[in-house]
Nucleic acid binder design. Sequence first.
DNA 1: CTACTTCCGCCGATAATCAAACAAAGATCT
DNA 2: AGATCTTTGTTTGATTATCGGCGGAAGTAG
Lengths: 385, 385
Amino acid sequence: MTSAPGSPGDVLTLISAGSATTRSDLARLTGLARSTISQRVDALIERGLVSETGSGESTGGRPPRQLRLHTADHAFAGVDLGATHCRIALMDISGDVLAECEDPLLIAEGPETVLAHVDERLDGLLAEAGHPRAALKAIGMGVPGPVEFATGRPNNPPIMPGWNDYPIPEHFAGCAVLVDNDVNVMALGEHRNAYPGADHLLFVKIGTGIGCGIVAEGKLHRGAQGSAGDIGHIRVSGHEEAGCRCGNSACLEAVAGGAAVARRLTELGTPAESGAEVVALVQAGNTQALRLVREAGRLIGEVLAGLVNFFNPEVIVIGGALSRVHEHLLAGIKETVYRRSLPLATHHLSIVPSRTGINAAALGAGILAIENYLSPENINRIVNA
Amino acid sequence: MTSAPGSPGDVLTLISAGSATTRSDLARLTGLARSTISQRVDALIERGLVSETGSGESTGGRPPRQLRLHTADHAFAGVDLGATHCRIALMDISGDVLAECEDPLLIAEGPETVLAHVDERLDGLLAEAGHPRAALKAIGMGVPGPVEFATGRPNNPPIMPGWNDYPIPEHFAGCAVLVDNDVNVMALGEHRNAYPGADHLLFVKIGTGIGCGIVAEGKLHRGAQGSAGDIGHIRVSGHEEAGCRCGNSACLEAVAGGAAVARRLTELGTPAESGAEVVALVQAGNTQALRLVREAGRLIGEVLAGLVNFFNPEVIVIGGALSRVHEHLLAGIKETVYRRSLPLATHHLSIVPSRTGINAAALGAGILAIENYLSPENINRIVNA
DNA sequence: CTACTTCCGCCGATAATCAAACAAAGATCT
DNA sequence: AGATCTTTGTTTGATTATCGGCGGAAGTAG
């Protein structure tokens, strides 16, 4: 055959995606002979990548043996490094969480300190899950700043002093390390877990700052310099007075980020220090906080309306700290987007709160690691070794 | 081998892209044995897809025989339908223009009339180039409105009365027809002709309206509903008074499009009816027109600055009627983009005028047709037939 | 003119894939 | 319950694709 989509890696991809759970499925989907598929599957089983899990339902004949990813013997880590925290999820190859942990950790302490902490926690989680260190096949990591994805080096990150150009993967020997911006891994996690069928998705994180992860054709769009999605410094109209830390004025982040809302609330007589405190006030029923959050939603919506026209996504997911009061935030966002975007683009557009919640980044980072390990090229390499 | 990138279609893709011009090149690039490559190339030659064109330079031994796409026996058409014109380029398989034509033609006359006209012109061009009708393998078409690309049906196009949901491909029997938005095909043409190495490119067309074609990872991004790139209705700050035909106000198109500039110029006492007249005034040295064009550039730049932060392109190409005075337009655009976008995103960003000029759309449409024909799947189908 | 290099086609050996026969395991019919 | 049917999975010999080496072709370098 010519464009045969049937290498061992492709077979495993189909199993992994859930598109095929039996040998017959695989034969049908790939167009290869049943015997060839059996041989491929045997190779994958021998390598410990696939296992048989009993029989399925008969459809009138012999019941097929079910195939699944072999969850033992492999472990993957998703690491979420924030400005002040570190969350790690240890996952098996199918993406289920085996163990997780969360600590306060200042990223400003620099790469050596922080990564040593991560390493220690990884050992703990592996022990907890009963895996030897060698079982850890890949690590995904989300960091709060721009990263050159190909090399895993932070690229002039504003809030990660000491990390610029630091080669993070070299800190972990013997296992692949994928480093990306935190919003990107959140977008990936949300897409894979909640909207796997959507071709184009935006994940908007509204915390202290505002960022956006872009999934185009099912893959992360990182842009030419890996800085795509940095929507926090897009200009919004009518707020020329708001100065931003980036040096410009009227940036989205400077008028609708968690810090900005807290500041405006303070100016109006209700003291608030951070986005978290704003959330608490809203949850306590403070109408002024509520009004400001809704107004922030409108401003974010103004920017998103433009991006909807430009990018035409299928789903926009709202996440981050402020999304914990998403009813009010979403109301403002939707109101503006549906008013300012073109009908063709909004007709099938969903704007929804994040489903993966607080662990979005760690889970997404783990998925990044798993998908890298399960890529056809890597699997073919393993099987042929 | 396992993930063998070496089907006949892939081999042809390498030849077509200019990545390989000899059998040795192909063997090196694909990793296949020289004998296998020879066999593949023979099959392609036999099918009339590739031809040998003399010997190349020797590097110390026998000189390699050069391989090229076989330009005879195949013809492709790129059709550019505008509101009031029809341009067609007849191209060979390598993208060279064999014949072209241009007529005034009102798209509002409806699909039957317009497509009959196209068909007639196609016969004329084929005759001019000495090709039988059967040589026409595929037609690419750019139209001034949104299109459902998969089916070639216009999707509620505002300025194409009678075309909504009309199945354009069915009008041309026996040959593949690819229909897309005009800005998309312009972006494709500019990318392939002038910036083939750029991963991410935006083509901004500034005419009566304003639109944008998006190339992401070398491929057109059309969005969920095929409406991506519709940036003409993104809001710009400080122009709430400007009403737009879309029903909103302060749309980019309503303040910086060719029609808008002409209107403002008229208000200032210099009568102008269209973008073309504005261009003429600028070229004649009218300082008021010049100032307004530059101001339009600033407004466009404001929107583009946001898109640069979001999408992080490598190249932004400015085309369309108003770009004929691109010095002034570009000055305004660059000024604002470099001021309002993040340094990381602008560091390696080029903002340049279109190189393909008036024929951008027809050429891009032809490339769309050729690439569809040269897709590995299609070539494998042909070779295995 | 003679070595040396590179390119290319031929050909037997090797490896991948297939199709068909066969065995297994359950459903269905009588 | 037993025979038959249906679907799954394995085995096997045949077919096909690919490889790697050999030799001729067509140049360069000394």
